[in-house]
Amino acid sequence: MTDTLTTPQGRRIAYHRTAGQGPGVVFLGGFMSDMTGTKAVYLQDWAERTGRAFLRFDYSGHGQSSGAFTDGSIGDWFEDALAAVTTLTDGPQILVGSSMGGWISLLLARVIPDRIAGLVGIAPAPDFTEDSMWAGFSPAQREALLAQGQITIPSDYSPEGYPVTRRLIEEGRSRLVLRAPLPLPFPVRILQGTADTDVPPAVALRLMDHADCPDLRVTLVKGADHRFSTPACLAMIAAAVDEVSG
């Protein structure tokens, strides 16, 4: 059953919580995705089979949560995730961050490291608003974004494309994690497809090089794309959660 949580900022967040043993598992989805995606549902089924506590939720402006997507920013979605983890879970948690959710997970690691028992990144995309979006825009796109406040970029996942707002880019600059020390005092596993054209393997390698983590491993999966949702890939996610759980 889907429930709702009102965050300290007044946003209504839809979530689904599975009771079980700890450490709990929290799934953090990607940009314009929702908690009904293949990886989130697979992990819930896995948690139910193995008796693990599990939480999946929709950021504001995503899925069943309140708000418009174009009103949101990395900071808003981080605040949503922080409220979900601190309010809806008990004890140490394993964060499973997919794409943008990987960035959100790293932001959580900076503020509540004592609540995090481990982190699994699935093609994590830290700082993508700056290093992928803004850096990849043409001069005309940058000019239109600054003048109009919003542009649309093509996407393999949406025929209408993705809306990108000026606020998303500018607010994202205050949330970058690859420009300052990034201590991760818990086991980290990064799963990355070599055929990922949205978040290339170089991002995972940059994160590995930058993070201060005593136990960090990157697994490159030949031929896997950004969805990372084949049966073999899904099994790898569950195995990684088991591994960082101790």
Rank of each mutant, 00 (worst) to 15 (best):
L146S: 11
Q93P: 09
I237S: 00
G75L: 13
D114Q: 13
G29N: 01
R173I: 14
R173K: 15
G29I: 01
Y162T: 05
V111L: 10
Y15C: 03
L108S: 08
V244G: 00
S66D: 12
T87N: 12
S60D: 03
Q64C: 04
L88T: 06
M236Y: 02
S229Y: 04
A224W: 02
F128V: 09
A81L: 05
F54V: 08
F27D: 01
A14D: 04
L176I: 11
L119Q: 03
E143L: 08
R17V: 06
G121N: 08
G136E: 11
E79H: 12
V85H: 01
T4H: 15
R12E: 15
G161E: 08
S132Q: 07
R52H: 12
R110L: 13
P185T: 10
V199M: 05
G118R: 03
F57N: 00
T50D: 09
G136A: 04
G37T: 06
R206V: 07
D80L: 09
A40I: 02
Y42E: 07
G22I: 13
I13H: 04
R49L: 15
W134E: 15
S105R: 08
L106A: 05
P181K: 08
T50M: 06
A140D: 14
A19T: 11
D34E: 10
S155M: 13
G22L: 14
E171L: 12
F31K: 00
R12L: 14
A211S: 05
I190A: 11
R110I: 11
E160T: 09
S66H: 09
W134Q: 13
L5H: 10
V120C: 05
Q64S: 13
A83H: 03
A235H: 11
T2E: 00
P185Q: 12
D215E: 11
L207P: 04
R175L: 10
I74G: 04
V26W: 01
A239L: 13
G161R: 04
Y42A: 11
I151G: 01
T36W: 01
P124T: 03
V96Q: 09
H210A: 12
G149C: 11
I237E: 01
L119G: 01
V221E: 14
L182T: 06
A144G: 07
A40H: 00
